[in-house]
Design a protein around this nucleic acid. Sequence first.
DNA 1: CTCTCTGGCTAATGCGGTTAGCTTATAGCT
DNA 2: AGCTATAAGCTAACCGCATTAGCCAGAGAG
Lengths: 186, 186
Amino acid sequence: MPRAGLAPAAVIEAGAALADEVGLDNLTMGLLAERVGVRTPSLYKHVDSLDALRRGIGMRAKAEFAVALARAAVGQSGAAAVHAFADAYRAWTLEHPGRYAATVRAPEPGDEEDRQVSDESIQILFDVLTGLGLPESRAIDAARALRSSLHGFASLEAGGAFGLDRDVTESYHFMVDALIAGFTAP
Amino acid sequence: MPRAGLAPAAVIEAGAALADEVGLDNLTMGLLAERVGVRTPSLYKHVDSLDALRRGIGMRAKAEFAVALARAAVGQSGAAAVHAFADAYRAWTLEHPGRYAATVRAPEPGDEEDRQVSDESIQILFDVLTGLGLPESRAIDAARALRSSLHGFASLEAGGAFGLDRDVTESYHFMVDALIAGFTAP
DNA sequence: CTCTCTGGCTAATGCGGTTAGCTTATAGCT
DNA sequence: AGCTATAAGCTAACCGCATTAGCCAGAGAG
């Protein structure tokens, strides 16, 4: 009987791809096993549990997401950097809905590895916002506001909550513009 | 053997309360059955399925949420109305996390009853925003933006994503202020 | 070539949702 | 009050999915 030649990283990667296709909530050990050409129990030789699989997908996704965000914002400054960041944010979530859902889970308390990866995107967000010239005391507020808005928009869009005909991309740009204007207002 | 005297509405209500306690995702037929003092299969005399239960909780919650929002905003106008709306939004979600999670699910296509209840909150949101004197063409954009931001904030806060010490309520007010300023900016 | 380690498999457990089919409390009628 | 039909509850059973136990063989190290 030939081996499938799996490795934990390959299982996580396949899981991430599958999550994008069927949704993180519908990701099942049986489905993933079929995808990688193996029987369900064999997966446990590579991942500890379904929960561990989700954590692995989440950490991998957080790292990929941070790279995409950084690449988009690099070389830009001020409002343009914020827009580039926001556009990359939305594009990535639309392209990788399953991965994105996995990135939303906050790390378990004490999970240093996860916390570190999670902080990467936050750091980029901070860097982008400091380019707006915000006073130090408002940086955290602005970061929370922008993150909430982008996440909420992505979450609602993915859930099909924007029924009206009006162009969704335009609404997105309007929101980001409004936030930038509000951040830098007197 | 005495009857428990259940009714569908009572089951939904108990389910909503239980969802607030354990989280919508952890709401189980067995748990709810125990709560209402009945064996699991007996629940099916009152609700068609777990999914139907969630729909019922969602519709009930949407109606309650709309009432809370309307009550908060009534009699106010302009920015004050928006703040009252936003504060009521956050307070309600913190108080009813399970119910709130149930309100997020978009209605199934063709589910008129659900769609109608879902539209109530949206309508209140529109009414509050028109008080800002927005041009008609921007009303939808602003509604989407505010909803996204409030939902995203609530969602992240519930998920424990705001780790830093900085006061969360202040960040929330900052976000709402920024949006209002941005909406009404030139 | 052999030994060991490890990935893969089958069988089995347990939980959660759901269905089938029986039993009887209770409402409504006479 | 007695009779009956309906419907609420119950037990038994099924199915899907996560997970564990224990066996077997492929592949690399020597």
